[in-house]
């Protein structure tokens, strides 16, 4: 077949929009800690520059790190479910993570203060402006 006959192929039809392959399943998954460190819950999408992915993150093992990790894993499942809304297994997993997230959230707020203004319900005084803002991490001599 020469170039001309290929171009004249009458059977040619294409949507013209080259499709991204579907992510077939929400499994396998990283554990929440590793997911946060790697930047994705899904090993199949973990494609680091120069093949150098993160091996740790600065808050790993802290209450805030735990909350971030669980929240991140749940967020990843939300984005997945946005395009896979009939995946019952992924939805069950999301509900489990959201229950864990609520517990981790309350544990954190009890010890370190409010994350939302709604959390002031659990505060003894108006400490919304007292606890450090996220960009202040590592600031020396913080009040």
């Amino acid at each position: 077949m020469n170039e001309k006959t290929i171009r004249q192929d009458t059977g040619f039809f294409a949507s013209q929009l080259i499709p991204t392959p579907w992510q077939g399943s929400s499994e396998p998954q990283y554990a929440p800690d590793e997911a946060l460190t790697r930047g994705t819950l899904f090993p199949g999408l973990d494609l680091p520059f120069m093949n150098m992915g993160n091996r740790g993150n600065p808050y790993e093992g802290t209450p805030l790190g735990e909350l971030m990790a669980i929240g991140f894993a749940a967020h990843e499942l939300v984005l997945y479910l946005d395009t896979h809304k009939d995946d019952a297994e992924a939805f069950m997993m999301l509900k489990k993570l959201l229950a864990l997230k609520r517990e981790a959230h309350d544990r954190y707020v009890e010890r370190y203060g409010p994350l939302h203004t709604d959390d002031l319900m659990m505060s003894g005084d108006y400490d919304w402006v007292k606890s450090p803002w996220p960009w202040q991490a590592g600031e020396g001599g913080m009040k």
Binding site: G39, N57, P58, L64, G65, G71, H75, L115, H116, A137
Partner: peptide, 8 residues
């Protein structure tokens, strides 16, 4: 009042 990923 937190970041999505720690920055320090």
């Amino acid at each position: 009042k937190k970041l999505q990923y720690p920055v320090k």
